[in-house]
Amino acid sequence: MRTSDAVGRYGEQVAVAHLEAAGMRVVARNWRCTDPVRGEIDVVARDGDALVAVEVKTRRCGPAGTPGAGHPFEAVTPVKAARVRRLLVAFADASGERAGSLRVDAVAVLRPPAGPARVEHLRGVA
């Protein structure tokens, strides 16, 4: 397994724990779609009546505690967020999950050289 894959898996585990601690219920992880929209949703969760696609971005931090590749949220562009929203619609159609609303969130996991990860959660990015 590549180091970047291991960091990503770690970040998703941390993000799921954070979402569940916040009262959300995870419905699916790493859901893939090839039609009509190609792509993957990292985490699909329920937040009350809302169905939420969660884009998880993880970065390792250097000794100063800052990520070398920029903040994880910088990778969640408006284009990426819109694509994840289209994937969420496809997930809802394919799974039969009904919701009062659909939402896209982003979770940043910052992994320092030592100590626990820092988690930031942005709700409603799309």
Rank of each mutant, 00 (worst) to 15 (best):
V104Q: 11
A99Y: 12
C61S: 04
G11Q: 10
G8C: 06
A50N: 04
V119M: 10
V89N: 11
P116G: 15
G124L: 02
S95W: 07
P116L: 05
V119N: 11
S4A: 14
K80L: 12
V89R: 15
L88A: 05
G23Y: 09
A117H: 12
V37L: 01
A64Q: 10
L122T: 06
A99C: 15
T34V: 11
F73W: 07
D105W: 05
E55V: 05
A126E: 14
L51G: 04
S95F: 09
V43L: 03
G11F: 07
H18M: 01
V14I: 15
P67E: 00
V125P: 00
C61I: 05
R60K: 12
A17F: 00
K57D: 13
V107S: 06
A64T: 14
V76P: 01
R123Q: 13
K80Y: 06
V107T: 04
Y10Q: 10
C33K: 00
T77Q: 03
G100S: 10
E97G: 00
A81I: 01
P116D: 12
L122H: 09
S4E: 13
R103P: 01
Q13L: 12
I41F: 02
R60N: 07
A106R: 11
V76G: 02
A69I: 02
R9T: 14
T3I: 15
E120D: 15
T58V: 08
T66P: 00
V52W: 01
L102S: 07
E55I: 06
L88K: 03
C33A: 13
